[in-house]
């Protein structure tokens, strides 16, 4: 299946970069194969004639699920920060970006 190259090496590396993921050579090959099989299945689906079928935008038979604009409880700050890998005072602390 992998020799059919549904997903190119460049595409796979691009997707990994966007997801901030770094792979070993073996992992990359594995990912390409798995992604490839998903895409292959999509190609199967695309063969189906959908003429006259309305596009699906959501799988649930529901619309208009709302809440009223009324304030509710917030999380105490200590709990909000409880899982933060790093913090400073009342804030999360993250590496500088750009």
């Amino acid at each position: 299946m992998s020799e059919r190259r549904i997903i190119s090496r460049d595409d796979a590396e691009h997707v990994a970069r966007l997801a901030h993921l770094r792979f070993t050579e073996a992992e990359m090959t594995d990912c390409m194969e798995k992604l490839g099989s998903i895409l292959e299945y999509m190609q199967e689906l695309q063969k189906i004639d959908t003429t006259g079928v309305a596009p699906t935008t959501h799988v649930l038979p529901l619309t208009n699920v709302f809440r009223a604009d009324e304030p509710g409880e917030t999380l105490p700050r200590e709990r909000a920060l409880a899982n933060a890998p790093a913090r400073e005072g009342g804030s999360f602390k993250v590496p500088r970006i750009i």
Binding site: R67, P71, G72, T74, L75, R77, G89, G90, S91, F92
Partner: peptide
């Protein structure tokens, strides 16, 4: 349902 008012202490309207 967190409030939108500005000016709260950081990370208290969460």
């Amino acid at each position: 349902s967190c409030p939108t008012d500005a000016g709260g202490e950081p990370n208290t309207h969460v």
